[in-house]
Amino acid sequence: MRSRRHILDSTLRDGAQTPGLCLTREQKLKIAALLDAGGARQIEAGVPASSRREKETIARIVENRKNAAISVWGRLVPSDIAHAIDCRPDVIHVSAPVSHTHIHARLGKDEAWVIGRLRVCLGLIGKSGATPSVGLEDAFRGEPRFMEAVADTLLDFGVKRVRISDTVGVALPGAVREVLTRLSSRLGDGAVLGFHAHNDLGMAVANTVEAAKHGCLYADVTAGGIGERAGNCDLARLVAASSDIFDWGMTEAAAFKLQRDILETLRPENAWLPDAVP
């Protein structure tokens, strides 16, 4: 019997960050409707803090949805969380960097700052009624002991939803197993894990399957695998590659049609986008 796993589609968030891609509000609403009707369990609708127009669009997506949970993405910034709360999503995802490179070089902060900000942001989300979700950004270059400290903070706040992100696409399946095993052990049985792959070395689908084999309930995908650099895990390829062991809530044919319909929505202005692969 196949195990149930869930599609978390990030076409409207990480996919929308594909350089050169510019989505109109109408395109975003249409894509969200396609995903909602097509079997995605969760739709990552965007980044509310990025603009007033983005917030309005996300609020419309929340209003329109019939089936899927709607999540939004924010940095470890209280104002990002405030903007997120305004959209009244089901899930607010906050991204917490866990690698030395991201904490020190990009943010110019330290690990104590990350933990402190995480506590502030989780406190805000907790008051909003939305489900908190925390992403461990750059987890495959992160310090294991610091990730454990972050995990302990999540336990303090009762956070169940945790996403492990291979931010620069350098993870091997063996590393996926190792990080997930360690994190699962720290977080305990109640944790609901997700995996966010990047395809820089051509392993996004394989790593996502490996994550799903090792307990990840949610798989982050985008239509056609669009996204920064070499992109993300390709929705249709993931479903096609692993439907013999996982029930993704959609058949291979349905995933292909959904992906094709989304890419067709984008294609008039973006002929360079990938084709949907049957």
Binding site: T18, R106, G169, D200
Partner: peptide, 20 residues
């Protein structure tokens, strides 16, 4: 967007990525 070979894989646009 093909890994390693694609012409656009080192193009960057989003604010957070450019900053980083």
């Amino acid at each position: 967007g093909k890994p390693v070979l694609g012409k656009r894989i080192f193009h960057v646009e989003s604010g957070i990525h450019v900053d980083g």
